[in-house]
Design a protein around this nucleic acid. Structure first.
Length: 779
DNA sequence: GATTTTACGTA
DNA sequence: CGTACGTAAAATCT
């Protein structure tokens, strides 16, 4: 059925979709099916009333199989067939007749029809002039149906809709007033940098560095969102473009600016500031804002690259496509100007959203995080060589064993070849990946969980060997055969804005690329080669059962809280003598037996259940962890929840809170708005959020305090591992003294439901990361 | 050559 | 129907 345009003819906003779906086809109206429902949600969140909008589709009839390509000659949908040409004419006429102030292109097809541009991902959120009806303003965003499939797109789509609402005030297309000086001449950058010095008490400047293989190639500078200058240092082959004198003058002058009082803005200050210090000896004095961290504090769940932030904070055209080749200088200048513009928006948003304290706290983490990145961690070359040899030998044995069993050469790292081997050649029962929802598609897998299950069922020796092969190659490929720097170290970049929870993430350092990159997932075996500097020893301090303590207070588990309090600051021996063992307590309550009757096996059950229940894991996970049947796991779970009904009550409470405003606030004041689709996945991340985030924030607070207090001593901040910090101190120093100092920073009051408590700390000491020994500080 | 998928390491 | 991450190698896309 032909679906015509609906809505008031004097509408200021016109929405243009792609083509009618099944429901639209049946009812003859646009956006009345599932996509219409999502459109309503988007409009509601943007504060737009559907009845005030003209609503249309580019194609007026439903294509077979809902495939828009049906109306095009080519698969890329750029050459319309005659029918589509006719519909374009209709759309053109309607826009010319009704003249809405803004036309919103919903999805790629509408974007193409209205502007001739392809690629909705790059152009969404930008304001462009229509080519179909010149002079008419178009804002592009995702199609609601796409949001349906990929719920994380809801936020940008809502932001685009809000922009459209603002733009619907008038038909005027905003003019891009930016003045960008690309690859500036010496006179230009000299004048500009001197002006920065003159205005150091008035201006805030954004700085952006581009690098070529670790060397700075461009520097972008901007004091105003409509002005930026880029300075080229290296050409695209990595050769200097300035003569020695000019380059020296440039770095000196830039150094003078960055060590003046001028307020500086960066997008990921950690990188630029470290690079400036490490390769140019410039120690930036006054970092006023980091737009990456600012955006993280405001919107922890969204994408945070500059292009995306600009699309929601500013009215500038997309510029990512200029990042390669001869337009690099343009890209660099736009980065700087847009960073400058975004900073003002975020500065306002931080207060509006009430997250300034989170932002400040994260900003204070830059220095210790960057210290650790630049300082690095030493690798003992002999231990490394030994580990590589041991595991290479082991791999040889495994491969010999496999070739004897199989007599067919296959690549055991190839999931495809393994599937063929196991499920076709050997005829083993096909295993499928565990699904997050019963609506997910069933996928064949050969992962460890599947192979273990197959081994339990069939005892086929090849499975054992494949599992071992996987373990050893993973260890060798990712963790042992790593590049170290000339000084025998590895470096990691700690990413303060790396997670949705406030925990840090860790990844390959761009400044000093080395090691396996991520230092937060090194397996125990490989940790043996990570060593302190000569003459130093390692002290590890980690929060004791941190997340379990937080959960106990969140759900108000009186018995558990009492146990944590009773064991606080006590030695291992004392806890044993006084029956202070969480997992034994759990088991004794579950089975209604005396504490002393709890066997090792029952304690294990208690431990697994507490842990998995805290994150609302299901019977499948419990069965796997305990190696039992699903039926048995279900029984254990029922026992656990009968013993601890508060947990489900708390889960209900979290759901109610989400219903209210989709916002959770942790005991340390971190705020997160959950934008996922309503359902179990959303609930699970919400349950996990508060304990995970609180522990992460607690540790980072402690780490900053400790670093500030002791950075001027011989102490070296060594590693951060979510709930643990590692330091290195001189061999002859008293370790108890350092432990006391760590305690001073780490023991910190937390308040949940008007009850104040602390989380205790465990220590380890040693001379390699893999051989640390427990140190009972309270003994 | 770039991007996505699979598998797996940590807290 | 644990969640939170990052990386290597294979697989797939363009």
């Amino acid at each position: 059925m032909f679906v015509s345009t609906v809505g008031p003819l004097d509408a200021k906003i016109m929405l243009v979709g792609e083509a009618p779906g099944e429901t639209e086809d049946r009812l003859g109206k646009p956006f009345v099916g599932p996509a219409g429902k999502t459109l309503d949600r988007i409009l509601m969140e943007a504060g737009i009333s559907r009845h005030e909008c003209l609503i249309a589709n580019v194609a007026r009839e439903r294509p077979p199989g809902n495939k828009i390509s049906h109306y095009f000659e080519d698969s890329k949908c750029t050459m319309p067939k005659p029918q589509m040409k006719e519909w374009l004419k209709i759309l053109q006429n309607e826009i010319e007749t009704y003249r809405p102030n803004v036309v919103v292109a919903l999805g790629g097809t509408a974007l193409w029809a209205l502007t001739g541009m392809k690629g909705i991902k790059n152009f969404r959120g930008t304001i462009v002039e229509s080519s179909l009806v010149p002079g008419v303003k178009v804002v592009a965003t995702y199609h609601p149906q796409k949001v349906n499939y990929e719920w994380s797109l809801l936020f940008p789509t809502v932001m685009d809709m809000r922009k459209s609402l603002r733009e619907s005030d008038s038909p005027t297309i905003p003019i891009d007033r930016r003045e960008l000086i690309i690859a500036s001449k010496r006179q230009q950058w000299e004048d500009y940098l001197r002006e920065c010095l003159d205005k150091q008490h008035e201006w805030k400047i954004a700085i952006d560095l581009e690098a070529y293989h670790g060397h700075t190639s461009w520097v972008g500078i901007s004091h105003d969102k409509d002005f930026a200058m880029s300075v080229q240092v290296l050409d695209s082959d990595g050769y200097p473009v300035m003569n020695e004198n000019d380059e020296l003058a440039f770095w000196q002058l830039l150094g003078a600016v960055l060590t003046s009082d001028i307020k500086q803005i960066y997008h990921n200050a950690g990188y630029d500031v470290s690079q400036l210090w490490y390769t140019h000896g410039i120690l930036c004095k006054n970092v006023w804002m980091d737009t990456l961290i600012g955006a993280h504090a405001c919107w922890p769940e969204i994408e945070r690259n500059l292009g995306f932030l600009a699309s929601i904070c500013l009215n500038v055209p997309a510029w990512k496509h200029t990042s390669a080749g001869f337009t690099k200088g343009m890209y660099n200048a736009e980065d700087a100007a847009n960073t400058r513009g975004i900073a003002d928006v975020i500065d306002t948003e931080l207060d509006k959203a009430g997250v300034r304290h989170t932002y400040d706290s994260e900003m204070s983490q830059i220095e210790p995080a960057e210290f650790m990145q630049l300082n690095g961690v030493a690798i003992d070359p002999e231990i490394k060589e030994r580990l590589v040899k041991e595991n290479t030998d082991r791999l040889d044995l495994i491969e010999n064993g496999l070739s004897e069993l199989l007599k067919k050469e296959i690549n055991f790292k190839s999931p495809k070849q393994l599937q063929e081997l196991l499920y076709l050649d050997l005829g083993l029962p096909t295993q499928y990946k565990r699904r997050r929802s019963k609506y997910d598609e069933r996928k064949v897998t050969t992962d460890a969980e599947a192979l273990n299950k197959l081994y339990r069922e069939t005892k086929h020796p090849v499975l054992r060997l494949i599992l071992e092969h996987r373990k050893v190659t993973k260890l060798l490929d990712t963790f042992l055969n790593i590049e170290v720097t000339e000084s025998g170290k590895v470096h990691t970049s700690y990413n303060i804005a790396g997670t949705d929870t406030g925990r840090w993430s860790s990844s390959r350092s761009i400044i000093i690329p080395s090691g396996s990159g991520n230092l937060q997932n090194i397996p125990y075996e490989a940790r043996k080669m990570y060593v302190p500097p000569p003459g130093y020893k390692i002290i590890q301090a980690d929060y004791k059962q941190a997340e379990a303590v937080i959960v106990a207070y969140l759900i108000n588990d009186v018995r558990l809280k009492q146990m944590f309090q009773d064991s606080f600051g006590k030695s291992k021996k004392y806890c044993e003598e006084n029956k202070l063992d969480v997992h034994k307590l759990t088991a004794s309550l579950m089975y209604a037996i005396e504490f002393d009757e709890v066997t090792k096996e029952l304690r294990k059950i208690g431990k697994v259940l507490r842990h998995s229940s805290n994150y609302s894991a299901g019977p499948a996970v419990v069965a796997r962890e305990l190696g039992t049947t699903m039926t048995d796991a279900k029984k254990q779970l029922d026992l656990y929840h009968a013993m601890c009904p508060m947990l489900r009550i708390w889960h209900k409470k979290v759901q109610e809170q989400l219903q209210k405003n989709r916002t959770l606030i942790t005991p340390l004041g971190r705020k997160r708005v959950f934008m996922d689709r309503w359902g179990d996945t959303l609930f699970r991340s919400a349950y996990a959020f508060i304990p995970q985030s609180t522990v992460g924030d607690l540790l980072n607070k402690a780490l900053v305090h400790f670093y500030k207090t002791w950075k001027h001593t011989a102490m070296i901040l060594w590693l951060q591992l979510h709930d643990a910090m590692y330091i290195c101190v001189p061999e002859q120093d008293d370790e108890r003294m350092w432990m006391q100092r760590m305690l001073n920073s780490m023991l910190h009051d937390l308040t949940i439901d008007y009850e104040t408590f602390q989380i205790d700390v465990d220590f380890k000491v040693g001379h390699s990361w893999g051989t640390l020994e427990e140190y009972d500080y309270y003994a």
